[in-house]
Design a protein around this nucleic acid. Structure first.
Lengths: 142, 142
DNA sequence: CTTTGTGCAAAGGCTTTGCATGCTT
DNA sequence: AAGCATGCAAAGCCTTTGCACAAAG
């Protein structure tokens, strides 16, 4: 007898933490975020992809960005008007000095702050430390 | 004929910028905010006032807080989950170290960062400098 | 008396979620 | 073949706004 039956083995592995699947949408969102040197809202990403012809559902954009944040591959913060802004977690890291009046922005490197953040976090037993820092003021022109 | 008519004079002055009126609600919200040493969301303020018996409409709380911000008497920022947090503009100033997983929060004083912010801003010709800094990571427990 | 502030409820905007289908593994 | 990912649309949540009434100046 030709045994065509396949022995049923446990196929449902407890998938401890399977990596997210590689889909067109996930790739599109991820690269869009990577190519943006600054923070982008979910809706901006959505529009951006549309313009580039890589249309992705808004819900998917939200879900993907959320996943990235949970995986530590993106940072998130909220804008003044309540929208969530995401940024790819890249090694290069800088901060902004923004003029409250004219909006002029200066990019800053802050190695001291980076070090301080690491040290203080470690002191309190925190790992995988990220941080967000923004300075606001009135620039010389205003 | 007894003229009872009152002469109509221009009563509508262009009220350049009249100070807000002194009302029970405005007072309640303002002191509630002052008594909080840290950031409070509009809804927290609302609940707080209810508990203290100084009930105020939620919309009024929002409006009052907004007014305070515009007048520069309060700072506002957004929490990770999108709620607006308000704080009375006081000299004392601190930062947060938040666990991404359990949400545990440690308050930090950061005199070094404060100094750095002032120095860097001045270097670029900025005045009236303010800043917002938040650290995120995974705490020892998680 | 005029104008501003308040309450309530409805509307608005951003984000999340349910469900059927498509695509990755 | 099995299961996660996607889309669409509906639901959720925080916040703002319209309108009638009350209070302050």
């Amino acid at each position: 007898m030709t045994d065509t039956g396949t022995p049923r083995m446990e196929t449902t592995m407890t998938s401890t933490d399977s990596a997210p699947r590689r889909t067109r949408q996930r790739t599109a969102v991820t690269s869009a975020l990577r190519e943006s040197d600054s923070f982008r809202t979910a809706q901006e990403i959505h529009d951006l992809l549309r313009q580039h012809g890589h249309a992705v559902g808004l819900a998917t954009v939200y879900r993907t960005l959320q996943t990235l944040v949970e995986a530590g591959e993106a940072d998130v913060l909220r804008t003044a008007d309540g929208q969530a802004s995401y940024r790819s977690c890249s090694p290069e890291h800088h901060h902004h000095l923004v003029c409250r009046h004219c909006g002029r922005t200066v990019e800053l490197a802050a190695p001291d702050v980076e070090r301080w953040a690491q040290a203080v976090a470690a002191e309190h037993g925190f790992a995988e430390v990220g941080h967000h820092l923004e300075l606001t003021g009135r620039c010389a022109t205003c």
